[in-house]
C-alpha cells in the first residue's frame, strides 16, 4: 500500500465523517437537496439538521480525540516505553472504517497503541472490545465479552469484514 501523506494534525482534512459516508448520510443533507424532495420530506430533513446542530455529534468528539492522540503520540517513545509514533496510514484506515460503520453501531473511543496503531474501543454491555488496523490493512480485534475472550483478525479491503460487524452488533445488542 502506498503511503498517503497526511497533513500534520489537520484533523478536519484527514477525518471527514461528515463528508459522504452513505451509512451516516443523516449528517450530509443540505439546502441543495430541496429541489429533489417533497416539502414533507424536506421538513424531515430540516428537523434532522436541527437535531444534529443542537446535539453535538459523536464525530466531533472523535475529531477531538484524534487531535489529542496526534499531539500526545507523534514522537518516538511517547509512552516512556519505546512506543512508535502514531502511524498515519493506520489512522487513515481507521477513519475509512468509521465512515463505513453502520448507523446502528455507536462510535467508539479512540486510543493509540505503542505499536503505532490507532485502535477503536467499545466498552458496553459487559464487552470490552479493542479493534485496530495496521498499515497493511489487517484488522485485529481482541477483548472480553460476558462469555469470555474474543479475538481474531481479518483483512480490511474497503468493507468492514462481516465477522467484525457481527461482533459489533453483539456489543450493541442489536442482533
Amino acid at each position: 500500500m502506498s503511503a498517503i501523506p497526511l497533513p500534520k494534525p489537520s484533523i478536519s482534512d484527514s477525518v471527514n465523517w461528515r463528508k459522504a459516508p452513505a451509512s451516516r448520510a443523516r449528517y450530509v443533507a443540505t439546502q441543495s437537496d430541496s429541489g429533489k424532495v417533497s416539502n414533507e420530506l424536506w421538513d424531515g430533513v430540516q428537523k434532522q439538521r436541527i437535531k444534529t446542530v443542537t446535539t453535538p455529534p459523536d464525530d466531533v468528539r472523535l475529531e477531538r480525540e484524534l487531535a489529542d492522540i496526534f499531539e500526545e503520540c507523534s514522537s518516538e517513545g511517547w509512552n516512556g516505553y519505546d512506543a512508535k509514533p502514531i502511524d498515519r496510514e493506520s489512522v487513515q484506515l481507521v477513519c475509512s472504517f468509521l465512515e463505513k460503520l453502520p448507523v446502528d453501531i455507536s462510535y467508539p473511543e479512540l486510543c493509540a497503541e505503542p505499536n503505532g496503531e490507532l485502535t477503536m474501543v467499545w466498552i458496553k454491555r459487559g464487552y470490552h472490545l479493542v479493534i485496530g488496523i495496521d498499515n497493511k490493512g489487517k484488522v485485529a480485534w481482541g477483548g472480553t465479552s460476558p462469555s469470555g475472550r474474543i479475538y481474531g483478525d481479518a483483512k480490511f479491503e474497503n468493507e468492514i469484514p462481516e465477522e467484525v460487524i457481527n461482533i459489533l452488533h453483539s456489543v450493541e445488542g442489536s442482533r
Binding site: 505499536n115 485502535t119 479493542v130 480485534w141 481482541g142 477483548g143 472480553t144 475472550r149 474474543i150 479475538y151
Partner: peptide
C-alpha cells in the same frame, strides 16, 4: 505475540 491476543490480555490487565 499475536496482536489480537495481546489486546485480550491488555484489556484483562486494565480491568
Amino acid at each position: 505475540l499475536q496482536i489480537s491476543l495481546q489486546r485480550v490480555v491488555a484489556t484483562e490487565l486494565a480491568k
